[in-house]
Amino acid sequence: MDAVLLLIGVISFVVGLRVFLTKNRVQRLLYLCCLNFAISALIALYIKSPMGGVVAAAYFIGSTLSSNAIAHTIGKVQRLEGRGEW
C-alpha cells in the first residue's frame, strides 16, 4: 500500500470523526469540505484509468458547489436569527 494513500485515509478518518463530534456549525462545514477533497483524491487514486480523473473532477465540482450553497445559507440564517453580523 502506498504511503500517500495511507496518509489520505488516516486524514479522512480523523476528519470524519471530527465532523460528527463538533458542535459549532461553521467548523463542521469546514471539516466536511476537507473530507470531500479527501474522498475525491481517493477516487482518483483508486481507478487506474483516465476515466477515474473525470469522475474525480465531476465529484470535486459538485461537492464544492454544494458546500458553497450551504455556507451562503448559514450566513443568511445567522443574519435572520440576529446573532453575528457576517
Partner: peptide, 24 residues
C-alpha cells in the same frame, strides 16, 4: 442545516461506494 450537512456527508459515502464497484 445540521441535517443537510450530514446528508451531504452520507451522499459522499454513497458516491465512494459506487466508484468502488466500478460503475463510473
Amino acid at each position: 442545516l445540521d441535517k443537510i450537512i450530514m446528508l451531504e456527508f452520507l451522499t459522499g459515502g454513497l458516491i465512494g461506494l459506487i466508484v468502488s464497484f466500478y460503475y463510473l
